[in-house]
Design a protein around this nucleic acid. Structure first.
Lengths: 132, 132
DNA sequence: GTCCCTGCAAACTCTTTGCATAAAA
DNA sequence: TTTTATGCAAAGAGTTTGCAGGGAC
């Protein structure tokens, strides 16, 4: 995972990146704002959004390509998939997937110059299965 | 494709459904609102949203599971995939996909009771390739 | 007549942006 | 000193909702 240099090394940006990398929960901007606020009580939501945008555009972090009204972010840029619990909304990582998925022949889709695909799984997480 | 009965047969709902089924463009609520307005000039956006929500909850139409800030709807509920042009934003249907994709072994994802997955392709459409 | 649905407008949520100030280099 | 980034607050976009009146059955 190569680290790209960002323009200026603001303290806020460092803390945002640290906190995002510290959690495995693919937080929303607001959730991350609450986490960061514990260390930087004066930070604003706007700064969170501006930095998440900047960092994801530079490939330092990842903005998840999932449907839904709220954007979610991931500090892990290694290739992996996500699975979302349709009951509680939590999102977990999937690192290992059946091999055949990785080698899809994208040339067969007519008209388009296909660049790639986004794939997300959904189901019921173990916590939700137990609590009912 | 079984048609489910909806509560009351309002004229607005019928027209919304007709117009949605008439286009292949996976419109947003606002786009559909403009289409429907030609036939029902007094209809409101709220009615569009309420009916799209009702119809998709009943499986009569489909709310697309694509990332992005605007919801898109599809009058075709047959199993198919979508490909989105990253340049102009248009969304096209994909009906034929390599066979191996259809038979993914979902049991291998730990912890979850996996119900399914959403998959969306992206690339450059032929129109955009020509116009540059 | 009953109850669902509509049009309208206001409210809400998430995100972006303008501006004056503060911080990095 | 120069330029970028921040905090704040207001604005924007998309969507939802409360309410009174209208339409389906």
């Amino acid at each position: 995972m190569l680290e790209q240099k960002v323009n200026r090394n603001s303290h806020q940006r460092e803390v945002i990146l640290e906190e995002l990398r510290m959690v495995k929960s693919h937080p929303t901007a607001t959730t991350l704002y609450k986490l960061v606020s514990k260390r930087l009580p004066k930070i604003s939501l706007g700064t969170i959004y501006r930095n998440l945008d900047l960092l994801s555009k530079r490939g330092v972090i990842q903005k998840l390509e999932v449907s839904g009204s709220v954007a979610r972010y991931d500090g892990d840029t290694d290739k992996h998939y996500h699975i979302c619990c349709t009951n509680c909304g939590r999102i977990d990582d999937i690192y290992h997937l059946p091999e055949e998925l990785i080698n899809i022949d994208l040339s067969k889709i007519e008209g388009y110059d296909v660049k790639g695909y986004h794939m997300n799984f959904y189901g019921i997480c173990s916590d939700c299965r137990e609590n009912q």
